[in-house]
Design a protein around this nucleic acid. Structure first.
Lengths: 135, 135
DNA sequence: GCTTGCCCTAGAGTTAACTCTAAGGGTTAC
DNA sequence: GTAACCCTTAGAGTTAACTCTAGGGCAAGC
């Protein structure tokens, strides 16, 4: 089982070394081992855990809440229900985000058409009713 | 054509009064009229413009970039190409965000199943290979 | 043995986007 | 006329998530 330095992990996960140390400082990485001299040794399972952390971050979860999850993980089976509930809640949140993004996309696409038509006409006036508007 | 106070607009758009004034301070609302005594008078077209601003924010666009767009709007037809290009770029960005969110959802759903199985078994061990892991 | 390049910590600094406070003005209700 | 409740500004404070600096350690190559 191979290990990786912090800069290798940073490159792999597209994070900065600073960010990884910040996560560690915030208690997101209680499982990372160290050499005698204090250098972090990342295992494959650590990289997998960091990918879950990145996934939770992508749902908009703040780092303090992610820490709760990490704490539950180290607390063992007594927290299984908490963790299940958390992922179900995240699922609902991501579903809502997807709906929001769809609505956003519709508006953006409408604007693309609006400006395409305006460009073809050479002026925005074909859409307009009067004075300057943000359309 | 009716007008609205800042607190009415805040309620309607689910923003705080502070946020609306902050947007104004940042130059996102050069089109808002005022009474003689300085009170902002929002028109329906202003609310529509704010909805576009919220839409751009939802794509992750920072306020300084949104200001560029607002400036282009007040600059008139000479900036039509800029605005078209901007919305096409936003469209690509939102598409990428949708892809990201799909990948995130897959991982989250996988975790929901993982914890459901673990809950039924009463222990996480059925998934595990050895010591404590963040799974 | 010394330079290079990685690693470490503590703690300060940065940035965006608010969020609030202080001090004050205008309008309506009694 | 005065209380209540809006509105205004300038500018300070907050928060999250980094991002960096200073000062130092260890290990390999010349």
């Amino acid at each position: 089982m191979s290990t990786y330095s912090i800069s290798e992990v940073a490159k792999e996960l597209n994070l900065s070394v600073y960010t990884l140390r910040y996560y560690d400082k915030e208690g997101l990485m209680p499982f990372i081992e160290r050499t005698e001299s204090g250098t972090r040794l990342f295992k494959d399972s650590d990289i997998a855990a960091l990918k879950i952390i990145e996934c939770l971050k992508a749902t908009g979860m703040p780092i303090k809440e992610i820490k709760h999850f990490i704490d539950w993980c180290t607390d063992g089976d007594s927290t299984l229900q908490n963790r299940f509930d958390m992922f179900m809640e995240r699922k609902a949140i991501v579903n809502a985000q997807m709906e929001e993004l769809k609505k956003t996309m519709e508006i953006i696409e409408h604007k693309c058409l609006y400006y395409q038509t305006a460009l073809e006409a050479g002026t925005e006036d074909i859409h307009k009713t009067g004075k300057i508007e943000i359309s």
